[in-house]
Amino acid sequence: MQVKNNVVVGMLLGLILPLLAWVFSEVFFRREIIADKPGVPYLIAVAINLILLKQIYKANAEKAGIGLLIVTFTVVILTFVFKIKLH
């Protein structure tokens, strides 16, 4: 996988899965999936981001990995504050 070694590219890669999780959980499946566990789709997206992070570091794209890591930790903190803690 050829990844441009840029922090912004890593941040954009890191935003894809959490945004997809938000679209599926909030727009399409508003009340149908996991009603008592609202943070699960986001945490699954974070787990996949961490697997992607491993692949990015194997490709020697450290700056892109830093951008992905920043977004991943931000999503974890926001998921905890807004989805898990407030429910």
Rank of each mutant, 00 (worst) to 15 (best):
G65E: 01
K83T: 00
G10R: 05
E32T: 10
G65S: 01
L86M: 13
L13P: 10
P41G: 02
V27W: 15
L13V: 09
F29V: 04
I16K: 07
F29S: 05
L12V: 11
N5Y: 07
V9W: 09
I33W: 15
V81I: 15
A35R: 14
L52Y: 13
K58F: 15
I77G: 06
V81S: 02
G10Q: 10
V7D: 07
A64M: 06
Q2S: 15
I66E: 03
I66M: 06
K85M: 15
G10W: 04
V3C: 13
I66L: 05
I77V: 13
Q55H: 11
V40T: 13
A21F: 01
I48F: 05
W22L: 10
I70Q: 00
D36G: 12
V9Q: 08
V46Y: 00
L19T: 10
L17I: 02
K63E: 09
I84L: 09
G39W: 00
Q55L: 14
E32N: 10
G65P: 01
N60K: 12
I33C: 09
I84H: 04
Q55G: 15
A59I: 07
K63V: 07
L43S: 03
E26F: 13
W22M: 08
V75G: 04
F82A: 04
E62V: 14
A47G: 11
Y42Q: 04
G39V: 00
M11H: 03
A45D: 02
L50E: 03
G65L: 00
G10V: 02
V7Q: 10
Q55S: 15
V27M: 13
A59Q: 12
L68R: 04
N49Y: 03
A35L: 15
N60E: 12
A35H: 14
K37A: 15
I16D: 07
F82H: 07
R30C: 11
V8H: 09
L19P: 06
F80P: 06
R31N: 11
L52K: 07
L69Y: 08
N60V: 06
G10S: 08
F82Y: 08
L15E: 04
I56F: 02
V40I: 14
V8I: 11
T72E: 04
V81P: 02
I77S: 06
I34S: 14
P38H: 03
V8E: 08
V7N: 10
A64D: 08
L20K: 04
E26C: 08
L12I: 13
F80Y: 15
L15F: 09
I16R: 05
V9G: 10
V71L: 04
L17D: 03
F73H: 03
L78K: 07
D36Q: 15
A61Y: 05
A21H: 01
E62N: 13
I51A: 14
V23F: 15
N6V: 12
A45E: 00
A61E: 08
L19C: 07
L53A: 05
I16P: 08
I34P: 12
L78D: 07
A45I: 00
F24A: 09
N49R: 01
R30A: 13
M11C: 06
Y42C: 02
V3I: 15
V23T: 10
E62T: 14
I84Q: 02
Q55N: 14
L13A: 10
N5P: 09
